[in-house]
Design a protein around this nucleic acid. Structure first.
Lengths: 242, 242
DNA sequence: GGACTCCATAATGTATACCTTTCTACTGCC
DNA sequence: GGCAGTAGAAAGGTATACATTATGGAGTCC
């Protein structure tokens, strides 16, 4: 029984009038730099809304960790959360933990259904590769196609409980993922390891071994975190500061 | 480096004027029955606040899964989420997953620090037993002491990322945990297995084996879910309906 | 008798007004 | 010239007013 697609709602688009989506978009894409102080009136003005919906969006993003309390005051002033390699590792690791644990469930599926999912994942990965192969891949498309691959797994295997957690984590994840592809390119690092790991996931899903599926997914996310960390280091060295 | 205690903030108390805490309290303790339709004006009246803070609390509790959209309409009406054994299993399972994964970190601690945590946990468990041993344990105290045991683990071992997720999950968990002790009593089931599993956790922490610690914690939560499910079944049979 | 439609009611989403608190900047004093 | 105290500005928390939309019921038509 495939769960409903659940409408990705990731910051590909930012519908005007949806304060949360717009603000998420601004933070994920870096239009609001880490450390930037945000005030409700200023943001309301910028988004063309009143304080009420903007305030709600800010509170939600604070729960999701994209905004953090700033300044020593009692009343919380808020700022865009800093980017932090250790936090990125924790986010990737935890994503792998949740996604992997849910995906163990494929071992109880009939082989046909596993085959169908494996095929869909292979197709999703192909679309990802097609974008990544380009000389200068469109960051938004790259992000979207990679996200689609994993989202497919989540949609089909996660419980509503872990899906909710993954969605919440997804905001932070998206923030790091947004820079992931471009940083790899900048650092001259290849996409090939990702292809291989995605293929391992596909094969494991088809085989139906719970341990293999979980291992493959967790490895993918753990390694992705290390690749990102490495890319950041190299880019730092190449550019000078970060 | 022990993380800051982070102030439990669980529904032991419900400070007047804090809409979120009050509403959480009402839902967790069952003062608002599952399925109850909630409207902002009515709740605002009941809590003695205006719609604004009440609305924010409702939105947060909806993200945490304690309130759910109700009615087919476009504009979401909201109701208290139903209690569901399968959801409970998922909540307990996921809690064990996150808490267990974080606690693996004790394997890299110096032995002294592990000893200190083990001692603190043993003490926390003792306080829990002291309450549970009573003829008719105070549900609030029972809840609080059990929560304190696990919270100690989380505070000392979880990353900020998983801590945030556990906190969000904690609302749903608290809702089932609130009935857990009383239901065991009602069903005539013993607390002894919990004592044993807590002791296993303490021993594993002291020993410092990452696998043992994770296994012990996950087993505790998985078994707790089964005990709760069993207690519900028996109570159903005893009382007639649920 | 049942189903459909229309209207009144009430709830949500948004905007704005008010109050309290905090930060800042200016001024005066040491 | 520097520091401290104070006054003004501005931001967050709350309350309320306004606009829009769904809901539920009553009445009518088939």
């Amino acid at each position: 029984m495939p769960k409903p697609p659940a409408g990705a709602s990731l910051p590909i688009s930012a519908p005007e009038g949806d304060a949360y989506a717009q603000l998420l978009h601004l933070v994920v894409r870096g239009d609001l730099a880490p450390g930037t102080r945000l005030t409700e009136p200023a943001l309301a003005l910028r988004l063309g809304l009143s304080r009420t919906p903007v305030r709600e969006a800010m509170q939600r993003l604070q729960l999701e960790g994209l905004l953090v309390p700033a300044g020593g005051g009692e009343r919380p002033r808020v700022a865009v959360a800093p980017l932090d390699i250790d936090e990125a590792r924790a986010v990737y690791q935890t994503t792998g933990l949740l996604e992997g644990a849910g995906a163990r469930g494929v071992s109880e599926w009939p082989a046909l259904r596993r085959r169908t999912l494996a095929t869909a994942l292979r197709q999703a990965d192909k679309e990802f590769r097609d974008i990544a192969r380009a000389k200068t891949p469109d960051p938004a498309l790259l992000f979207e196609k990679h996200h689609a691959f994993h989202q497919r797994i989540v949609d089909e295997t996660a419980t509503s409980v872990s899906r909710a957690l993954l969605h919440s984590l997804g905001s932070r994840l998206a923030r790091y993922e947004w820079f992931h592809g471009p940083l790899l390119q900048l650092a001259g690092l290849p996409f090939a390891p990702t292809y291989d790991e995605h293929q391992a996931i596909v094969i494991a899903v088809r085989s139906g071994s719970a341990d293999d599926v979980e291992r493959a997914i967790r490895a993918n996310w753990t390694n992705a975190a290390e690749r990102l960390a490495q890319a950041i280091m190299r880019a730092r060295a190449a550019i000078g500061s970060y």
